[in-house]
Amino acid sequence: MTFLDIPTGAQFIDIFAAAILVTAFLIVSSKSLVFYVRLFALQSLLLGGVAMLVVFAYGETHILIAAVLTIILKAIVIPIVLWRIIDRIKIRKEVELSINVTVSLLICGAMVIFADSIAEPIRNSKQVLNPIAGRVFPVSIAIMLIGLFIMMSRKKAVTQIVGLLTMENGLFLSGLSITYGMPLIVEIGVFFDILVAALILGVFVFRINRTFDSIDVADLRRLRH
């Protein structure tokens, strides 16, 4: 069942992937926790869109469930949970940075170039590549790296969760781009794990807030050596 012809589909996928990368950059430049969560929701929605395009343009129907799950879980459920956390525990809504925005953006820009060079061996691989892989795969690696960077450079517990989830969005995109997604049964298991991980981390944020009176991860420094 193909509703789109493949070249149009590929064009849309390129646009969506670029938009995902833009949301990752916007997260890095954002100073408000609320924006973090909104941008993450938008990013997941776009990712779900890419998955939908793979379903309808390439006829890879097995990804449909994963696409729907992405939209429901990552664009709706997890953002609502994070939103509740921010709201309920009345934390200061600004993100605390250990690296300022300008430098962060420069580092992320360098990461995109680096991601492109990591993707090189895959692009040059002898295997038959999907038409979208050459362009979207480096983008997915860049998103993973930016997610990792968010986790390392932003101090709030919620920002670390968003960083982790961004990394996993990058992973899903990389799977979509080079193999049209993992086998469904595996994909569902991965989703379940991510959801549970996000919920557990959410519970920890509540508890950390209760015992430390802040959710600044920089306060977590009692254990050394």
Partner: peptide
């Protein structure tokens, strides 16, 4: 559920 065990668990999961 002490400070130190929450910190350890957070680091562990992340």
């Amino acid at each position: 559920e002490k400070e130190s065990s929450l910190e350890a668990a957070w680091k562990y999961v992340i």
